[in-house]
Computed example of a mutant assay.
Amino acid sequence: MNADYAHWVSVPTRWKDNDIYGHVNNVVHYSLMDTAINEWMIRTAGFEPGSAGVIGLCVESHCSYKAEVAFPDTIDLGLRIGRLGNSSVRWEAGLFRSDGTLVAEGHFVHVFVGREDRRPVPVPEAIRTEMLKLVRTGDTA
């Protein structure tokens, strides 16, 4: 696995992920990135999405497609943090076929806000502590 990423998740593609062209549809890539981020937030950082007073809202996302992937391939998704600000985080993801081929690269920017007022707030300290473990060297703000 690529050492540029600090956290890895392996996800088998599903039959329904293929589109009429015979490859995994582009929306699946976004879903996998979003799922990997939220799985990490819940399992590693202790985030409780249903009850937390502070939530992360996606304000930007991007995906650049590099190669095709199709069922029954497995996607190895690497996750890192490209930039950690006071109230925002830029998640970066690399999606690889099991043979090591880069399939896609993408990012999500989350801004942490109060659940009720939707106003920006600092990333909660417990979450920030865990996020720092995923930050590329020299990319904190």
Rank of each mutant, 00 (worst) to 15 (best):
Val123Phe: 01
Val9Ala: 09
Asp73Tyr: 00
Ala52Ile: 04
Gly85Leu: 09
Ile75Leu: 15
Leu77Glu: 03
Leu77Tyr: 03
Leu32Val: 10
Met1Glu: 09
Glu60Arg: 13
Thr35His: 10
His62Trp: 11
Arg136Glu: 10
Phe96Thr: 07
Arg119Ile: 15
Ala6Gln: 12
Glu68Tyr: 10
Gly106Thr: 04
Leu102Glu: 12
Ile127His: 00
Glu105Ala: 11
Ser31Tyr: 00
Ala104Tyr: 01
Val135His: 01
Val89Leu: 07
Asp34Glu: 12
Arg136Trp: 04
His110Gly: 10
Asn2Leu: 12
Val54Tyr: 02
Glu125Met: 10
Pro124Ala: 03
Glu68Gln: 13
Asp4Met: 05
Thr129Trp: 02
Ser31Leu: 15
Gly100Thr: 00
Ala104Gln: 01
Ser31Met: 15
Thr140Pro: 11
Ser64Cys: 12
Asp99Glu: 03
Leu134Gln: 01
Glu39Trp: 06
Gly85Asp: 01
Ser98Thr: 11
His110Lys: 09
Leu134Ala: 02
Leu84Tyr: 01
Glu48Tyr: 01
Arg118Gln: 15
Gly56Ile: 08
Arg97Gln: 13
Ile20Pro: 04
Met33Arg: 02
Ser98Ala: 15
Lys16Ala: 14
Thr13Lys: 04
Asp19Glu: 08
Arg97Val: 04
Leu95Glu: 08
Leu134Glu: 05
Val103Phe: 00
Arg128Ala: 14
Val54Met: 08
Asp34Ser: 12
Gly53Asn: 13
Arg128Val: 11
Leu57Asn: 05
Ile75Met: 11
Val121Phe: 03
Ile42Met: 05
Val135Cys: 15
His110Arg: 02
Arg83Asp: 14
Val135Pro: 05
Ile55Gly: 03
Ile127Phe: 00
Ser88Tyr: 01
His107Gly: 08
Arg136Cys: 01
Thr129Asp: 09
Trp8Leu: 05
Ala93His: 09
Ser98Arg: 15
Thr137Asn: 13
Ala52Asp: 15
Val123Asp: 03
Asp117Arg: 05
Lys16Thr: 15
Val24Leu: 04
Glu48Gln: 09
Asn26Pro: 10
Thr13Ile: 01
Arg119Glu: 14
Asp17Gln: 05
Val135Ser: 09
Gly50His: 09
Arg119Gly: 00
Leu102Gln: 09
His29Thr: 02
Ala3Met: 07
Ile55Ala: 03
Gly50Ile: 07
Arg43Ser: 15
Ser88Cys: 03
Leu32Trp: 09
Trp15Cys: 13
Ala70Ile: 07
Ser87Thr: 10
Asp73Thr: 02
Ala70Val: 06
Leu77Met: 14
Ser88Pro: 06
Asn26Val: 12
Gly85Glu: 02
Gly85Asn: 02
Ala93Gln: 08
Phe47Val: 15
Val111Phe: 05
Val11Met: 07
Glu125Lys: 08
Arg83Pro: 07
Met33Ala: 10
Tyr30Arg: 05
Val109Arg: 04
Glu60Ala: 14
Arg128Ile: 11
Thr101Asn: 03
Lys16Cys: 15
Thr35Trp: 03
Arg115Lys: 10
Gly85Tyr: 01
Val59Met: 09
Ser31Thr: 11
Val27Ile: 12
Ala36Ser: 13
Ala70His: 06
Val9Asn: 10
Leu102Cys: 14
Gly53Asp: 06
Met1Ala: 12
Val103Asn: 02
Ala6Gly: 04
Arg119Val: 14
Ile55Thr: 04
